[in-house]
């Protein structure tokens, strides 16, 4: 199981991005790049040298490796559906969120390190949106802890297996909420458009504007892995725990594919929201998480 998890961590993020791009291409009437194209790009970048801005300090060089390490740690904490997590302890999801927070801190200061106003803009937006996502994510986690009575990822997922009306409602609310989080954290449409890295409206891509070579490869891999992690979280909620390893794994991969295709479709169908409307969209996640919590309270206390 450990080997499988490592394999998934190493391969699936690239396929995930490849599948999104393929979907967009097919919808636009093109054939599109091969599914493994992000993989080839990754290795090409790893083989290259770098150009580093003279304004920057060690922060700029430290940041990509640290981001990747933090996301990797988060990946080790999160279990695969139906499986055990490699590292688990009470309230491990707090470390999950905070490790990603550390990655975010360094991503932002590395962007500010270049002294570029573009990157400052991206950094500012990234952290502003995070201020809405983070409390919503903790509300969601709180609901899961309350309904399961457990306090680590692994045991929570193992004990929200029941399929009565309340649980299903909570699961639906959590799923939609997490999907919004996936769009925000992955910097996808309608929050951000990964294709437009030189317009004034972008967030994530512009923060990596000055990176090249292995550092850029690290950043791209880390952000793809982060999306897959949120997808995995979502899968853990949807896929019942007791299906058996093989079936869970198949369902999990299928679900990730569905998520990637959905993202591809969303990006084909709609435009990015105006920057001033993005917070409202993210507040939807807060509202859904709160709704999930209220449903759990109803479930536990049988109405007021």
């Amino acid at each position: 199981m450990i080997a499988v998890q490592f394999l998934i961590i190493l391969i699936v993020p690239f396929l995930f991005i490849g599948l999104i791009n393929r979907t967009k291409a097919v919808w636009a009437g093109r054939r599109g790049a091969p599914l493994l194209q992000p993989f080839y790009d990754f290795f090409k970048l790893l083989r290259k040298g770098e150009v580093i801005s003279k304004t920057t300090t060690f922060i700029f060089r430290l940041s990509p490796s640290l981001q990747l390490a933090a996301v990797f740690l988060a990946a080790l904490i999160l279990p695969l559906p139906g499986g055990d997590s490699l590292l688990h302890f009470p309230a491990d999801f707090v470390l999950f969120a905070y490790a990603l927070g550390l990655a975010r801190f360094f991503m932002i200061i590395a962007a500010l390190d270049t002294g570029s106003s573009f990157e400052g803009m991206g950094a500012s937006r990234e952290v502003t949106f995070a201020t809405i996502v983070e409390p919503a994510f903790f509300i969601l986690l709180g609901s899961l802890v309350l309904i399961s009575g457990q306090n680590s990822f692994e045991s929570i997922f193992a004990s929200i297996d029941s399929s009565d009306g309340f649980s299903i409602l909570v699961k639906i609310l959590c799923t939609v909420s997490l999907f919004i989080m996936l769009l925000v954290e992955g910097s996808r449409v309608p929050v951000d458009d990964p294709n437009t890295h030189l317009e004034l409206t972008m967030i994530h891509e512009v923060m990596a504007l000055d990176y090249s070579g292995p550092d850029l490869a690290f950043i791209q891999y880390a952000s793809a892995l982060k999306m897959v992690l949120i997808g995995t979280l979502l899968a853990n909620i949807i896929i019942p725990y007791s299906l058996g390893a093989a079936l869970s794994l198949t369902l999990y991969l299928a679900l990730l594919a569905v998520i990637a295709i959905t993202i591809g479709f969303i990006e084909s169908w709609m435009a990015r929201l105006r920057m001033s409307h993005v917070p409202q969209f993210i507040f939807l996640m807060t509202a859904l998480s709160l709704a999930a919590f209220v449903v759990v309270l109803f479930f536990m206390y049988g109405g007021f």
């Binding site: 790893l46 040298g49 150009v51 801005s53 003279k54 490796s65 390490a69 070579g213």
Partner: peptide
């Protein structure tokens, strides 16, 4: 483990950049 990961990736970066050109230029 986290610290090991950080140093691991930093070491990997260093290995990858060995004998590669690293140019210093102004901010894009």
């Amino acid at each position: 483990i986290f610290v090991v990961l950080i140093f691991g990736f930093l070491a990997l970066r260093r290995i990858l950049l060995r004998n590669k050109p690293v140019a210093v230029f102004k901010t894009w």
